[in-house]
């Protein structure tokens, strides 16, 4: 029979007490956290004017809205499911395909140009913001704050301001995306640059290279594949962002979607949404494939 070794009670007692105290402290913490969370929820309920009854009462609106956008509400097919007539004819679901594809193309171009310009600025700034490469404390601090500003202000706020400055159109959208992208990618890029192996950089400096040569020959080869991967990821995000730029008049398919939703062109809403979803998914799959390829080959 096995015997269990057990401390004598006199020695055990202090341990038991310590354990109980620790447990009680933890329990108090948990209870405090729950109370704080509960209070926050209650406060938020009032501030956000949450009205569960209204939601329950109107929830049929949501389902009927979904139902309505998937049925024709005018033309010869009135009342039929849109998927029954997915053609491109004047009465079909995708009747506006030429216009929509053009706008979708514009959306993609906005996303692409915004990503490219933003990535270029991020590329210029990231080496100055990286702790191991930045030239001086001051430039590092300034670059970091600048990038922070660029990524914290939502892109739609930039878009709103730019629409006033540059006029309605894709230019405002591209610039807004570019600024946000520069901030977001600048941070990621500089983090990549901070994690490199510094030996090649020391080597270049030791053999008489200047800062630019050091970045070009020692840093760049180490970071390029990761930069491309992050850039593609950002492109994916920006496609989503560009699809709503039109809400504030900054180009792309958003304007058309907003009109369709506001004017209750139900079948159009679903058609445009389907186009956006399919495009976003295709871009996701393609960039993910390329990214896996890149990081796989990079290692």
């Amino acid at each position: 029979m096995t015997t269990f070794v057990r401390l004598p009670d006199a020695q055990l007692l202090p341990h038991v007490l310590t354990y109980r105290r620790a447990l009680a402290a933890r329990r108090r913490q948990t209870i405090a956290a729950i109370i704080v969370l509960g209070l926050a929820i209650i406060a938020a309920f009032f501030m956000a004017e949450v009205d569960v009854l209204k939601l329950v009462a109107n929830f049929t609106n949501f389902t009927s809205y979904l139902q309505r956008i998937f049925h024709f509400d005018s033309g010869p097919y009135t009342g039929q499911l849109v998927v029954l007539h997915p053609g491109f004819g004047t009465d079909d679901w995708f009747w506006g395909i030429t216009k929509w594809l053009k706008l979708l193309g514009e959306t993609l171009l906005i996303a692409y140009l915004g990503t490219a310009i933003g990535a270029a600025f991020a590329f210029i700034f990231c080496f100055h913001a990286a702790d191991n490469l930045g030239k001086s404390r001051t430039t590092r601090w300034i670059t970091k704050r600048l990038l922070e500003f660029c990524r914290t202000v939502p892109e739609l706020v930039f878009a709103l301001i730019f629409v006033v400055a540059f006029g309605v159109g894709a230019l405002a959208g591209v610039l807004a995306l570019a600024i946000h992208t520069a901030g977001a990618l600048g941070k990621l890029f500089s983090e990549v640059a901070e994690n490199i192996d510094m030996k090649p950089a020391d080597g270049v400096i030791a053999s008489g290279g200047n800062w630019t040569e050091m970045v070009r020959f020692a840093v760049l080869p180490q970071v390029l594949s990761n930069f491309t991967s992050y850039g593609l990821l950002r492109f994916e995000i920006n496609v989503r962002g560009a699809s709503i730029m039109g809400f504030v008049g900054a180009g792309g398919i958003g304007q058309e979607l907003l009109t369709a939703i506001r004017k209750f062109y139900y079948a159009d809403v679903s058609a445009i949404l389907v186009l956006i979803i399919v495009t976003v998914m295709v871009i996701d799959v393609v960039t993910e494939y390329v990214r896996h390829h890149l990081t796989g080959a990079g290692r």
Partner: peptide, 21 residues
Amino acid sequence: RAVDTLIWALIWINVVGLGPF
């Protein structure tokens, strides 16, 4: 996920009306 938050907002406005909810 492919549908942006702002688009969802437009759809929900149809259900519960304008406002933070």
